[in-house]
């Protein structure tokens, strides 16, 4: 196991008007030189202790990094892929010692679980599903949902993992008659699952019974919306969407995220809040992540922007560092850090306060 060189760089300068601050605490350097595609944080048991580790994905290599003292990181395992490149890491909550990845070229062709042998000495890969996979999401209680096929042959499947990471059981959900773009859990409701579809509908499933409960058409102002988070409060469903195709509005600026409220009983919905870029900032949503009440997005301009969903406005901007645009951003699932990645493989860990 080779120790990788990491470094702590200077804290970047911030716009004093923005109340949030991002402090750079650590940097992981990718020595492979291949194109970096994703990052995630997960728990991994090392020598009897569960450690908050970082997983990095390049096109053909996924690596697990364990924390050392003083914000240094050591690469302990790597999984190699020869034929199909990695598209994304699929974080599965409530599970340790396992990472899922989606592989493919433009579309997902395979989902694999990455593990280690019981003695911890060799890496293992298990094929979970293959085919024309459209959407995938890790769910609470060691579950993973994926949809494959299109229209009449669309299949929506839940895989539940055993504690040792093996695939325990599979269950099918009733498919909607339109292609699913994304899935989202409903916070606090472990049996509910949402999906957004190509026809700008939000569908609701009961995960216990597999029933498709409702199809709700949302405002057509923004096409191809991605659902990031949902919660139910006082009989209403609140949903945070991002709008990759949103056009700039002269009055509002660029809407990147939006909070909508849905009455699932009547299927009526309305917009509650638009989360736009501050004046003077240009760019559309490219990629992003929502955790608790914080949303982070990489914009087409190469900048990362963060919104406090409760305050309703952008709280921090992170311009490109070292002349390199940002290409992906994730909130850490193991603490409150922000993981920001560049195409060349460098991952920056920020503390957001």
């Amino acid at each position: 196991h080779s120790a990788e060189q990491t470094e702590i760089a200077e804290v970047p300068a911030w716009d004093s008007l923005n109340p949030g601050t991002l402090q750079l605490v650590s940097k992981l350097k990718n020595p492979s030189g291949s194109c970096s595609v994703d990052v995630s944080a997960t728990w991994w048991e090392i020598a009897g202790f569960k450690e908050p580790c970082i997983v990095t994905a390049c096109e053909y290599v996924v690596s697990l990094w364990k924390p050392l003292d003083a914000w240094q990181w050591e690469k302990i395992y790597s999984w190699h892929f020869t034929e199909v490149p990695v598209l994304q890491i699929v974080a599965v909550p409530d599970i340790s010692n396992l990472v899922c990845v989606a592989l493919g070229n433009l579309e997902i062709r395979e989902i694999r679980a990455l593990l280690c042998s019981p003695d911890g000495k060799s890496e293992k890969q298990v094929l979970l599903s293959s085919g024309n996979i459209k959407a995938v999401l890790g769910l609470a209680q060691r579950r993973l949902v994926s949809s494959s096929g299109t229209l009449c042959d669309q299949q929506v499947e839940i895989t539940t993992f055993a504690e040792d990471g093996g695939s325990k059981e599979k269950q099918l959900l009733m498919p909607p008659e339109e292609t699913i773009l994304t899935f989202a859990e409903v916070q606090g409701m472990q049996e509910a699952l949402l999906g957004t579809t190509i026809m700008n509908n939000i569908v609701i499933w009961n995960l216990k019974t597999g029933q498709l409960l409702k199809k709700i058409h949302i405002d057509d102002s923004y096409q191809a919306s991605v659902c990031h988070k949902a919660y139910s409060e006082m009989g209403l469903l609140f949903v945070v969407l991002s709008h990759p195709c949103a056009k700039e509005n002269e009055l509002l600026g660029s809407p990147v995220f939006q909070l909508i409220v849905i009455n699932p009983k009547t299927t009526l919905s309305m917009g509650v809040m638009l989360y736009c870029l501050p004046h003077g900032q240009a760019g559309r949503f490219l990629e992003g992540d929502v955790k608790d009440h914080f949303a982070a997005a990489v914009l087409t301009s190469g900048t990362i922007a963060i919104w406090d969903l409760l305050l309703g406005h952008c709280t921090a901007l992170l311009p490109p560092v070292s002349g390199q645009n940002w290409s992906f951003v994730k909130w850490s699932g193991t603490d409150s850090h922000l993981l920001a990645g560049q195409k060349d493989g460098n991952i920056f860990v920020y503390r957001y306060t």
């Binding site: 409701m189 049996e191 509910a192 609701i204 009961n206 019974t209 029933q211 498709l212 409960l213 409702k214 139910s232 006082m234 009989g235 209403l236 469903l237 409220v261 849905i262 009455n263 699932p264 009983k265 009547t266 009526l268 919905s269 309305m270 917009g271 509650v272």
Partner: peptide, 23 residues
Amino acid sequence: CNKADLGPISLNWFEELSSEASL
């Protein structure tokens, strides 16, 4: 926004929709 525009609200919407879907 006005909650009244969303129609009658049920706190048990998930259970009610699940029962309706079983029929």
